[in-house]
Amino acid sequence: MRISDATRMDRLVSNTSRLEGKIATVSQRVSSGIALDVPSTDPVQASAYLRARGNLGRMKGYADAIRDGKGELELAEGSLTQAQDIIARGREIALQAANSTYSAVDRSQFAAELGQLRDQLLASANQEGPNGYLFGGSKMDAPPFSAAGIFQGNGDQRLLEVSPGFTIATNASGAQAFTAAGGQDVFSLFAQLQTAVTSNDVNAIATTGKLIADAHQQVGTARGEVGYTMQRIDLADSAQNMMQILWKQRQGEASEIDPAQVYSELSALQNTLTQSVSVARTQLQTLSVNRFG
């Protein structure tokens, strides 16, 4: 077999340049930490990377919704807790006022306190969050309860998706918590109690007092529902955290280098290049000595 000098030189050049090209590519991967320098490096992984990225984006969306939803629910829970405390004080007053030993002055003080409690209750029911009134549904142009305690909101729920296909309401129903729709009209009861205390109508005080106890339970139920929703959000949060870790892992697998494999590949290529250059040097020296030495 004849080996021409052109073939010999071409091989020396092409072997070293091919190895140098490979080393440059692998070095770039090592320095950037990214295996997918371009999609054609591994089209299947490039596609998988994008799917993982899309899913990660969705998981981030769920995480944000969970954070925002939890914030609003915590506010609602706080307002309902406050409302429950106020109603509990109203019930205490009812129990005390039902005792005929209290004087007219005492009853007058009870009546005044009941008026203040009703105002505080109204403030709790009209509490605002970052997205408007907590208990008014989607109606935002006026407080959910008028000064007379009339509900003027709606029953719309503000839903947020916190995991695939799973939505939660981030607002509690004002109607269910404070109006007859939930069993008792809380503001009306406070007005009735105030009237009964003022007129020293012991029977009416006792009857209204019992109903206020029902109202306390009614608001407690609304608060419990908020708490239950928060528990569901926490479960969704754990699930999305786990999914986020998995998708991050998948994204990393698709796009990032395996350090052990890449360093080993780089080392092998560098060794091969060293040997190739050594062979080339020997060949060139041998040829020069034999022909022209």
Partner: peptide
């Protein structure tokens, strides 16, 4: 142009668009 793993491409923009609607869903009055 479609090298998303290295910071170019459309995936980032699409994800941000949907993310922005997600933020809007959480804060519709903002």
């Amino acid at each position: 142009v479609f090298n998303d793993a290295n910071g170019t491409g459309l995936a980032g923009g699409l994800v941000k668009l949907f993310d922005s609607f997600n933020s809007l869903a959480s804060n519709p009055r903002d």
